[in-house]
């Protein structure tokens, strides 16, 4: 069992829950469990079935882009965070 920590900006998609307990051996499996419990969150953070590239995913505060992405393994007690990126530019 691991925990997904929900930031304030996404809580309207989890009925206000700050954390959701999930099962799964990888980030992808944990997200599948999460989205099954909170389908509104899936609609918010995925595009065409894929996690939006504008959503940062962390395991224990470490961005999974620097690990194995959605294949990053998770262990009991790990904390996963989904966080919409803040990005833009003058062009």
């Amino acid at each position: 069992m691991s925990t997904i920590r929900i930031p304030p900006v996404l809580r309207e998609n989890t009925g206000g829950s700050r954390t959701v307990d999930v099962t799964g051996a990888t980030v992808a499996e944990a997200l599948t469990d999460l989205f099954g419990k909170h389908p509104a969150l899936r609609d918010r953070v995925t595009e065409d079935g894929e996690l939006s590239r504008f959503i940062n995913v962390y395991v224990n505060d470490r961005d999974v882009r620097y690990r194995d992405g959605l294949d990053t393994p998770i262990a009991d007690g790990d904390t996963i965070i989904l966080l919409p990126a803040m990005a833009g530019g003058s062009r």
């Binding site: 304030p8 505060d61 961005d63 882009r65 966080l83 990126a85 803040m86 990005a87 003058s90 062009r91």
Partner: peptide
């Protein structure tokens, strides 16, 4: 021309 709040800073600050 572009910005992207560094992911490490973003999670810490939020």
């Amino acid at each position: 021309l572009r910005y992207n709040v560094h992911p490490d800073d973003l999670v810490r600050i939020i």
